[in-house]
Design a protein around this nucleic acid. Sequence first.
DNA 1: CTGAAAGCGCTAACAG
DNA 2: CTGTTAGCGCTTTCAG
Lengths: 345, 345
Amino acid sequence: MALKTVRIQDVAQAARVSTATVSRALSTPEKLSEETRKAVFDAIRSTGYRVNHAARNLRMQRTGAVLILVPNLSNPFFSQILAGISGVFMETDYSVLIADTHGRAADDNRLGDYALTRVDGIISLDGALPAETMQEVAGQGAADRMIFACEWVQDTPLPSVRSDNVEGARLAIRHLHGLGHRNIAHITGPEDNVLTHARRQGMLEERTRLNLPARDDWIIRGDFSLESGREAAHRILTMDQRPTAVFCCSDQVAFGLISTLTAHGVRVPQDLSVVGFDDIELSEYYVPALTTIRQFRRKLGARAARLLLDRLGGGPATPVPGEVLTVEVELVIRDSTAPPPPLAP
Amino acid sequence: MALKTVRIQDVAQAARVSTATVSRALSTPEKLSEETRKAVFDAIRSTGYRVNHAARNLRMQRTGAVLILVPNLSNPFFSQILAGISGVFMETDYSVLIADTHGRAADDNRLGDYALTRVDGIISLDGALPAETMQEVAGQGAADRMIFACEWVQDTPLPSVRSDNVEGARLAIRHLHGLGHRNIAHITGPEDNVLTHARRQGMLEERTRLNLPARDDWIIRGDFSLESGREAAHRILTMDQRPTAVFCCSDQVAFGLISTLTAHGVRVPQDLSVVGFDDIELSEYYVPALTTIRQFRRKLGARAARLLLDRLGGGPATPVPGEVLTVEVELVIRDSTAPPPPLAP
DNA sequence: CTGAAAGCGCTAACAG
DNA sequence: CTGTTAGCGCTTTCAG
């Protein structure tokens, strides 16, 4: 601020009106006489006035910002959801704050602090918020200003926007079954994650419905990461009876799996078929191009943003608490799936 | 805010001191008597007080936030830089605002608006800010509160933190040359991008130094994207004389290239070697695992954050304007490069 | 339709 | 070491 800051009062002076009028020109221009309005806007332009948000927010008892809680900023999966969210708020006068919870949400009561004094609302992409944090948020009356997107916390009354994870898993299994696979393994996410449960459930349901064999060691614990895909590959390589197809809880896991399998001479899809989940941009360009369940991440983010906006603005169609908005998913068939090898059992 | 908000005054009352004392307890606790300090902190705890940042910021003539300008949020390359930046600011009382410039930086004077009233400082990962925007920023005295990271704007006095792009390109070419390649192509970034120039320059320098053949059509225009890698592949497939190796300006381009080449029966690295740039997490898990130039993105982000922090705080070692901090890069050799095929010229 | 005036909650002189 | 006090720049009654 090298140049002295232009206040609303300077504008008022230049326009020969009161500060109240300038303020009104900004918020409710239609309530001013044509003449006055023009004078004010001319003054605004000539003085180079910019509103001071700190002052406005203080006065209005709001912060003008929303907080996005991301489990892991360096995971490309989230960036497109962020893009969706960010796109919506860009059109509003809210600023978007982004915080990485690093898997282990704000240890101290930082979240509480933010919830109360730094932001008007929160979108959490992290479903692993500690119960006490949730309590605090709820207890502080911030509950109607927080929603979940993508992930969510079980048994919370907060609304959420999520992909149809169960259906996604079903689609994957059905696709593999349609190709002739019967021995299908699944690499899960971390045990405490809601997505893990939803996808595994869909997988199990469909497996049962189709009467496919169930072996315990075909459910392999992972954590959505590339590394866990690699580990799963090693597990599979040492199995006495290998599955002919693997449904992975994320594309990253699928990449880790395929890369390691390939390095060990197992060909995908000739020897083993792989289905991912997410359809990140890269999946189309993997070798082989990955068959996967597409999540509309941008749309999901945008929808979450709008939902929060509604609640903040006391919008008309304010959804009931606990509402769940489900975004459809779709199967994208590429080159990582094929009929099982003829000689396989 | 269901519960009435606790003000500094309420704390003062509870602790039987003045508001000034409470304020001091928060900012300079060492200047209070043991006794008073304890009383205040007890009161803070019992009342559940939280500072109101809008008020503090208004008073202190600051905003308590920094803005990160990202060319494209959905590009995984940036997310880890963000993580690095975000990690540093997490330790401070600055909030991190993230805005996607969508390649075409804030059309309206939104950036100016932000620069002046919503944030104390800016880190731009976008080197393609229109000149007029830069002018505005400079003109507003915001120049000493803005820096670049990763990308930068040519001929600007603003400091920047960047990878050693030229050296990275040299390393790539040297590696390929060491394997026996002489016919090396390069897929560039967009023409108006500073990284494009730096990397191409390094590439050309080294090619000259090593006395390698230069063909114009071996410099292929791209734009860092997967799609542009695919397009480049098609170009290469139709060349009368194909290069035996390709140095790509980004890992994404390399993926697009390899995936398309593979689909057309060209094997990497047996028929053609490929080197990327960035070393995004996935590169290690690609098929084949990608040989590439590693950028320490997290470190780069963190360093940029600290640089800005210094300038905001008027830190001791405030760097001179225009300073360039260079972060080293390194060659990571994996499986996408090999000696050229024996039969090739 | 417009103006005067009262703060929003906090910090920083300035006194004591 | 602590208290008093004057605003930071804005919006919003309440009058006119």
